[in-house]
Simulated assay, not measured.
Amino acid sequence: MPESGHTWRKAFKGEPIEAEHVRLWTARRVSHSDAPLIANELYVALLGSGAPVIEMTLSTAGTRIRITAHGEGPLSVLYSHGPGWQIVNGLCHLAGLTTDECGLWAQLGANR
């Protein structure tokens, strides 16, 4: 049986004040208590890279939640594995760099 789910996307300005909006936007769409913090850390990592616009995507399928923050250019290792990365890895089941290396993603609700 296929799993059903939803996907939401929103572009946020690459400004620190938007981090609160990212957390609220995430909390209104998914009920996992760690999702807003993970979304925040992904957003802040791309914010640190200087991205003028950061597209956030939330996708659900069954019990899984995938959070993606995507910028305009390739991320350096500093932004894809900085201090916030330890928080993300500690709270989610899987995480990584997008295939185009312009974003970061994290997944909740699946076994490692």
Rank of each mutant, 00 (worst) to 15 (best):
M1P: 03
P2E: 14
P2H: 13
P2K: 14
P2W: 08
S4C: 12
S4N: 01
S4E: 12
G5E: 00
G5V: 01
G5M: 08
H6D: 14
H6W: 12
H6Q: 04
W8R: 09
W8Q: 01
R9T: 15
K10R: 15
K10G: 03
A11H: 09
F12I: 03
K13L: 12
G14R: 07
E15D: 13
P16Y: 10
I17K: 13
E18W: 09
E18L: 06
E18S: 09
E20R: 04
H21D: 07
R23G: 01
L24W: 11
L24S: 15
W25G: 06
W25Y: 11
A27N: 02
R28Y: 06
R28Q: 14
R28C: 05
R29A: 00
V30C: 11
S31L: 00
H32L: 04
H32Y: 11
H32P: 11
A35E: 09
A35S: 06
P36E: 10
P36Q: 14
L37M: 14
L37K: 10
I38R: 03
N40M: 10
N40R: 15
E41G: 07
E41P: 05
L42E: 07
L42R: 03
Y43D: 00
V44K: 00
V44D: 10
L46Q: 09
L46M: 03
L46E: 02
L46C: 07
S49Q: 00
G50K: 04
G50I: 05
G50Y: 06
P52F: 02
V53N: 11
V53R: 14
V53T: 14
I54T: 08
E55I: 04
M56R: 04
S59E: 14
A61T: 07
A61C: 09
T63R: 14
T63S: 02
I67H: 04
T68G: 00
A69Y: 08
A69F: 06
H70A: 08
P74R: 15
P74Y: 06
L75H: 02
L75V: 03
L75K: 04
S76P: 07
S76M: 01
S76V: 05
L78I: 13
L78E: 15
S80E: 07
G82N: 08
G84Y: 03
G84M: 06
G84N: 14
W85F: 05
Q86E: 14
I87C: 03
N89C: 15
N89I: 13
N89F: 07
G90M: 01
L91K: 10
L91A: 10
L91Q: 08
C92V: 15
C92T: 13
C92P: 07
H93M: 05
L94S: 07
A95D: 09
A95T: 12
G96I: 02
T98W: 08
T98C: 06
T99L: 11
T99H: 12
D100H: 03
E101H: 08
E101G: 08
C102K: 13
C102R: 09
L104V: 03
L104K: 03
W105I: 00
W105D: 05
A106D: 03
Q107A: 08
Q107H: 02
Q107V: 12
L108R: 03
G109M: 09
G109R: 12
A110L: 08
N111V: 12
R112M: 10
R112Y: 14
